[in-house]
Computed example of a mutant assay.
Amino acid sequence: MIRLTDFLRVPEPMSTKLKFNMRSGSGAGEAWDLLVDDHPDWLNLSRWRASNTNNNMGDARYLLAWAQYYPYGPNYFIFGGFFRVTPVVPRVIDGYGYDLELLDQHSEYIKRLIIRLGKPIGRQVYLRRYETVQQQLNPEVYELAPDTKLGTFPGYQNVRLRHHELQRIIANDEPSWKDALSSVKGVYVITDLSDGRLYVGSASGEANGLWQRWSGYAHLKNLTGGNRELERMRNELGDAHIVGNFQYSILEIFDPKTKAEIILGRESFWKQALDSRHPHGMNAN
């Protein structure tokens, strides 16, 4: 067992706290979702100063931030950065009372280092002091991933991938994702997050189902899967627009033995239901 405090050393142990973030509290979702998307609310989870002293960093000058890594279980947390803490002046209560500056120390472990707590964590103990956390929660280093963690396959109904995540999954042949996406055909939707326009497509004839179809989109020399409207957008806005704004989700899945015409019929239904055809969406037909 590798103790957390043996692995992550800090310059001022007596002035350092750990924040174990779970849900955002703002309706934005789980802390891990905010961290992996680099969402602004990720920092806000640790910036809040409430009248309840459990929510205050008090005299802490440094912060080790963590997000509950729910794919593994409630006692697993993934590292979100080492920060310098500066209280906002004048003092703010029940608001963002701290400025956080991300430091270079331990930055190589962000979204890679996973710890396991030896004791269950509750709302009353989500903020802990560095010098006592080992005794109180017995955190141990569980995993140091070779690349940024994306989690195991979350279920077909929960897929929501940004393009850089899709690239990494395909490039690394992520086992749980490859097994799941290769075993089904399906209808999917691509969302341009810059304007909300949709493209509905399908994997109806590919031998390896959605995995094979999405592998084309992940390739930086393709990006469009050969679609005419997406090619027009790529020529007009460039590769960076697709990589920076496209998000991929699944609408329906089908057994690999399902006939292509059935899947294409459902694709047509979703185009109509979501109004994804030009000019409102990105489907050319």
Rank of each mutant, 00 (worst) to 15 (best):
F7Y: 14
L8A: 05
R9L: 15
R9F: 08
V10Y: 03
S15V: 07
K17P: 06
F20N: 06
S24T: 13
G27I: 03
G29R: 03
P40D: 01
D41V: 10
W42E: 11
L43P: 08
L45H: 04
R49M: 00
R49C: 09
N56F: 02
A60L: 05
Y62P: 09
L63F: 02
Q68I: 07
Y69C: 07
P74V: 11
N75K: 13
R84A: 13
T86Q: 12
Y98L: 11
D99L: 09
D104Y: 08
S107G: 01
I110L: 01
L127M: 08
R129N: 14
R129F: 06
Y130H: 09
V133W: 02
V133E: 00
Q134H: 04
P139C: 01
E140Q: 12
V141K: 00
G155Q: 01
N158T: 11
R160P: 01
L161W: 02
H164G: 01
Q167P: 06
A171E: 15
N172Q: 13
N172G: 03
N172E: 12
E174K: 03
E174H: 13
P175Y: 00
S176T: 15
A180S: 06
V187G: 08
Y188I: 09
Y188T: 09
V189K: 11
V189L: 04
L193M: 14
S194A: 10
L198M: 03
V200W: 00
V200Q: 01
E206I: 05
N208L: 13
Y217R: 12
K221A: 15
G226M: 10
N235E: 15
E236M: 09
L237Q: 10
D239M: 06
G244Q: 11
N245H: 08
S249L: 07
E252H: 04
A260Q: 14
E261M: 10
I262H: 10
I263A: 02
I263L: 00
I263G: 00
L264I: 08
L264D: 05
R266I: 12
E267Q: 06
D275V: 09
H278L: 06
N283V: 07
N285P: 05
